[in-house]
Amino acid sequence: MAESSSPGMKREDPDRNSKMSAVVVVHGGAWAIPDQLAEASVDGVKAAACEGSSVLKRGGSALDAVEAAVRALEDNPAFNAGHGATLNADGEVELDAIIMDGRTLASGAVSSVKNIANPVSLARAVMEKTAHVMLTSRGANLFAESIGVVTVPPDTLLTEYEKKEWEKHKTYVTGVDEDFNTQWAHDTVGAVAVDRAGNVACATSTGGIRNKMVGRVGDSPVIGAGGYADNLSGAVSCTGHGESILKVTLARLILSHVERGKSVADSSQLSLQYMADRVRGAGGSIVVSPSGQWAATFTTDRMAWAAVDQDVLCSLPAPRGQWAIRRLLT
């Protein structure tokens, strides 16, 4: 099929092609991050990007790197995923996650799973150990049990901060109906990576929207919305207002622009702008191309993100020297 194999060849910035570099980019959610959380968020994404990068440096695959980075974010209570996730209308944690391998288009996802500390790793197990792509709810928990993934007590994932916030907001019956760009929104984490072989991968994990209905599934575990990875075009992880991201299948939309020859930065910009215009949704995305181009873009007030762009020609293990950290305020 000409149309599906050719796009990957149209790479921007030809001088990147000669020196394949390994890159990992992570995000900790696009929303109006309050000042008291901003520092923890930036520290968290830095540490996670470092985690992913060290996997790549050891020769690990892009898939290993995004899993490691997202696990670090899930374990960090500053983020709405794994430990620190938001509570649903019943005061319970229900988690969604996806992982995708750009080599084979294989992916795995879990939705509305409970009592799992690292949903991204369970998603990877769905990809590698089942004939399916997505498991939901109790079925996902039964699968976790069957492969020996430890179930943690519900309180393990709950933070004091979240308990307070949930109490504060549970009176908003229609909370999730309101415009997305409010202070209380709290979001998803994700990572994208390209390894030295040019393989790309993505992973996204979330606790969803605070006060969501029981069983609500957002964009994160849905292939093409919360994430997508294809060695012919690139890998994307999205964050923001889940229902809007779903409506425009944001991850796939971004890569369709890349396939038509746009840069990863322009593709992200165009797609987020389209989401704002068409369905009035705000959000953010991180993207890498197989040649190592990357972008972190958002239309929310803030998005905590970090990238480690480790050039193969500059393999000095400079632990802090290679950081490319910026925080952008739109």
Partner: peptide, 9 residues
């Protein structure tokens, strides 16, 4: 205000 509900929910 959601797009997808799963299983028991």
């Amino acid at each position: 205000s959601h797009l997808c509900l799963t299983a028991e929910g």
